[in-house]
């Protein structure tokens, strides 16, 4: 920089202002895509968030298969068909909380207010972030599937079974993410979000049939585990991946998803619109 940088900037800024003609307003689709682009850029620039998405599922899968597999199912190989769908569900359900983290961070850093002060269709921020979520969920799912395949897992349901299990899982997680969006708006700091989500997610995923059959648990616990939505989701995913679709479980998952959206969708949009 030179000594007269200030003066130079003065004229250049004035010139830049002069050429700031206003184009026609962005369409909802175009602003949603722009926010989606931002979500992808954030994954690129903050690879740490992919660490959770990739490393933890890998560690969990290896640990549970080789440490507990023998004790639970006789051998790691026999345990894998039971564990794979379960750990797939657990992994993706766990990372839904990033939705809340992202929104809460945006609010805390003032990015949210900057965006709110723009003349754009406001829900496009949420629609755009779904794009980033899709990428995260898909990446995590692919990693689990590839890893378990390498470890010797051969799903009886084949490609169709696995893909439809992942599709069902994504539907449920998108519906679940409305709760996280709401929490992201309501909680004060990203740390609070982290705390609350761990308090909810750990019991939700561990008090389920992800790792072991509920029948092996004490009666009281078994009855809790059986009504856990995650258990039903795992049942549905397992049935699809095993090539023996459980219509009841799948329908229940779809109904739960619809209820989540019906309740938390409008609630979240109201908080979003009126956040003052």
């Amino acid at each position: 920089m030179t000594v007269d940088a200030g003066t130079r900037m003065d004229t250049k800024v004035a010139a830049a202002l002069g050429s700031g003609a206003r184009p026609a307003a962005a369409t909802p689709l175009s602003s949603s895509l722009t926010f989606g682009w931002r979500a992808l850029l954030k994954i690129k620039h903050v690879p740490e968030q992919l660490f959770d998405v990739t490393m933890f599922p890998i560690m969990f899968t290896l640990m549970f298969t080789y440490i507990f597999g023998g004790a639970i199912a006789g051998s790691p190989k026999e345990y894998l068909p039971y564990l794979a769908p379960g750990i797939l569900v657990q992994t993706v359900v766990m990372i839904t909380m990033y939705t809340a983290m992202t929104i809460n961070n945006d609010i805390e850093k003032g990015v949210f207010d900057r965006i709110r002060s723009l003349p754009v269709w406001r829900p496009s921020l949420l629609v755009g972030s779904l794009l980033g979520d899709t990428l995260r969920y898909t990446m995590a799912s692919s990693i689990i599937i590839v890893l378990t395949l390498v470890m010797g897992y051969r799903p009886a349901g084949g490609v169709v079974g696995v893909v439809s299990a992942i599709a069902l899982l994504l539907v449920f997680c998108f519906s679940l993410s409305w709760i996280w969006t709401l929490l992201g708006f309501k909680l004060r700091t990203p740390n609070a979000v982290m705390g609350v989500s761990m308090m909810v997610l750990f019991p939700l995923t561990f008090l389920s049939n992800v790792f072991v059959a509920p029948e092996t648990m004490p009666d009281v616990l078994e009855s809790i585990v059986k009504v856990n939505p995650v258990t039903i989701l795992v049942d549905a995913a397992r049935s699809l991946m095993d090539g023996d679709p459980d219509g009841g479980a799948i329908t229940t998952v779809l109904i739960m998803s619809a209820v989540l959206v019906a309740v938390f969708g409008p609630l979240t949009m109201r908080v979003f619109a009126n956040r003052t």
């Binding site: 175009s30 931002r38 620039h45 723009l118």
Partner: peptide
Amino acid sequence: SLDEDLTGTENLVMLARLYG
């Protein structure tokens, strides 16, 4: 504020896109 995780260019491109 702008998004601290993005670069200067990315922030300005994003805002320009949002303005249409």
